[in-house]
């Protein structure tokens, strides 16, 4: 049997990697991809908790589906924004999008 903590650790690793991508990547699309990784990590947690702690209820699954929905919406809007920014500023490097500085 696989202990629950293994799933949690895999999810934590995936989450931390995604976090690193969000912090350190220059390209906005890459940041978005890292965010998707983080969302996936969260979903692993939800499903793992569902299966281990409350398999007779649907709460975990339901929330996993909601996360999926939100991820889809987020990707659509995020990518639209990136394309729009690219059109206006000719750049998708997050560091260069710093009109708010100082």
């Amino acid at each position: 049997m696989i202990p629950l903590s293994w799933y949690l650790i895999v999810a934590a690793l995936l989450f931390s990697m995604g976090l690193y991508g969000v912090f350190a990547r220059r390209n906005a699309v890459a940041i978005l991809m890292s965010v998707e990784l983080m969302l996936n990590a969260v979903n692993i947690n939800l499903v793992a908790f569902w299966r281990y702690l409350a398999p007779d209820q649907v709460t975990g699954m339901a929330w996993a589906i909601f996360v999926l929905t939100v991820a889809a919406a987020e990707a659509a809007v995020g990518l639209a924004l990136i394309i729009s920014v690219y059109r206006n500023r000719d750049s998708v490097v997050a560091e260069e999008l710093d009109l708010l500085k100082n």
């Binding site: 969000v22 912090f23 350190a24 997050a94 560091e95 999008l97 710093d98 500085k101 100082n102």
Partner: peptide
């Protein structure tokens, strides 16, 4: 330059 305007 602590206020960088960079979201990351």
């Amino acid at each position: 330059y602590f206020q960088t305007g960079r979201i990351q």
